[in-house]
Every structure is written in C-alpha cells, then in structure tokens.
C-alpha cells in the first residue's frame, strides 16, 4: 500500500470512528480527486462518507478557516484535518478566543510538503509533525534541513532593492488587485464579522480597485495580520491576480522574530506581543 493510500485509510478509519461514536458531528478533511489541481475540502457527516477522505501533495487548503464559519458551527462538534502548519492557525484562533479547544477535534496529518514543486513554506517548514492534535496520522516525514535560513527569503529579496524599486514593485503588484477579497476570505485569521473595508461610517478604505484603494486595502490587510499571520500562504495561493502577498507577510513575520523573538501560532498558550500588556514592559513602543 502506498503511503498516500495508508494515510487515506487511517483518516477514513479515524473519521468513521469519531462519527459513529458520536464524538463529532462533522469531519472536515480533503477529498483528493483525479485530475484536480487542488484536493478540495470535504464535509463528512456519516461514517460511510469518511471513505472520501485522503491526503496528498495537493492538499493546499488550510481547513481551519472553516472552524468559525457559522454554517459549520451550527452543525455541531467538528473534527478538522490539519497539517502541521495549519495547526499554527488553530493555535492563534485558540489564543484569540475565536474557538474553544473542547469544541473541536484536531486530526493531524504528517505532511511532506504540498505542490509539485514544493511551496516555499514547505521548503522551510519546521512543523511537518503536527503538534497538539488529538490524533496524528500518516507516516513519519523528515524536516527539511536548514529550514530557518530561507524562511523569509521573499521578503529579504525585496529588502535588497532600493526604496524606489520597492515602491515601483509594489505599485505594479497592487495595481493588479481586483478587490475580490479572496485573500481575506481564505485567511483563517480574518474572522471579523464586518471587515474594516466594509465599514462605511467613515469609509476607512476605498473600495474601488484603483491604485489608492488597492494600496489602502492591502496595507490594512497586512497590518491586521501583523504578529498574527502564521505564514500558511493561503492568501498568496488563492490570489487570482498572483500578487505576492506572502512577501508582505514574511516581512512582518521577520520583524516579529527579529524584534520580539516571536513566531505566531507555535502554541495556543503563547503571549502575542501586540496583544499582551505588561506594566513592567521595558520596551519602548506605543504604550
């Protein structure tokens, strides 16, 4: 049996058991499908349907985005299949009290990287073995060597450029934005009920897809993820206009690591620098 088939079997077995024992009402996982570029999410509510679950290198999606969806929540206790990198997003959701640990079951899956040419995040991954899950399936996988070095390579490549070159680069990239908000909708951490771009009194961000509106939107999006983004890369993957959003996220993550020795989502108990107040804080900052 191929490693993929045996992982699929474990996933199906695990999910079927959870569903038949009434542990959960819903299992969200991946359904690898012949001929598709992406193994789409599948929402399994019966042990029989659990056979559809599987895992392969096309399981790009970070399924934790569904954990706070109202439709999913009303279906009952939910188990979700997560890669090690996805767990980081779950950790932030737990840290920010968006979801409760007792309301979810985490089925971790060991992942050797996604994409035909592995995605950048996979080449620098240090969490292929999912941590903090209720169950972990799949064969052991190796961590890439020297992952930490290349972690912020896209941001660093841009840092090499002059200010003018960077401005020109981002102007060109952000001009492409069509304001479909796929980046926001796919982000597990963009859970605001009403996004700031949808607030009209006052209109903080112009909604027109002109350079001014696009710059405001993309900067606001980035800032709201500063110190929170876990680098799952979903925003960049789904951008229909191929805007390299990952480079912006990397830049922020790099600053967080350099300045605060902090990487978001490494554990649910972590204290996030931007949302933690301490009276004996000696660092200079806003407060």
């Amino acid at each position: 049996m191929s490693p993929e088939a045996s992982t699929a079997q474990s996933l199906a077995q695990t999910a079927a058991e959870m569903l038949s024992q009434g542990q959960v009402a819903l299992v969200i996982g991946y359904a690898p499908t012949e001929g598709k570029r992406l193994s789409p999410p599948v929402f399994v509510t019966t042990p029989e349907e659990a056979q559809r679950l599987g895992f392969d290198s096309r399981c790009f999606g970070n399924l934790s985005v569904y954990l706070w969806s109202p439709q999913v929540r009303q279906m009952g206790k939910t188990a979700v299949v997560v890669k090690g990198c996805d767990v980081r997003a779950v950790n932030v959701l737990l840290r920010e009290n968006v979801i409760k640990r007792e309301d979810i079951v985490l089925i971790g899956v060991r992942c050797g990287g996604v994409g035909d040419l592995p995605a950048h995040k996979c080449t620098v991954c240090d969490c292929r073995d999912p941590q903090g899950c209720d169950v972990v399936v799949g064969d052991a996988v190796d961590q890439p060597d020297g992952a930490a070095e290349g972690r912020y390579s896209a941001a660093e490549a841009l840092e090499e450029k002059s200010l003018d070159e960077r401005r020109e680069f981002w102007q060109r990239q952000l001009d492409k934005c069509i304001r479909c908000y796929a980046c926001r909708q796919v982000c597990p951490l963009c859970y605001c009920k009403r996004c700031i771009v949808e607030k009209s009194t006052p209109q903080w961000v112009e909604t027109s897809a002109h350079p001014r509106g696009n710059l405001s939107w993309n900067v606001v999006r980035a800032f709201h993820l500063a110190g929170r983004c876990v680098g799952c890369g979903e925003c960049e993957r789904v951008c229909p206009m191929n805007i390299p959003l990952g480079a912006i996220n990397q830049k922020m993550a790099k600053l967080m690591e350099d300045e605060y020795d902090f990487r978001s989502g490494m554990s649910p108990e972590e204290k996030a620098p931007f949302t933690t107040f301490s009276t004996d804080d000696t660092d200079e900052g806003i407060l």
Partner: peptide
Amino acid sequence: LSCLGCGACSFLCPTCHCFDIVDE
C-alpha cells in the same frame, strides 16, 4: 459548505455584471 464567500468567481466571470456605486 466549502464556499468561502470571496468574489474571485464573479470578478473573473465574463458574464457577471453586478456593480456598486460609491462616492469617494
């Protein structure tokens, strides 16, 4: 269930024509 509610499908659609009118 899996729909995330973004506008990529509509914006790339050659027949989708819904629009907004805004003052800036």
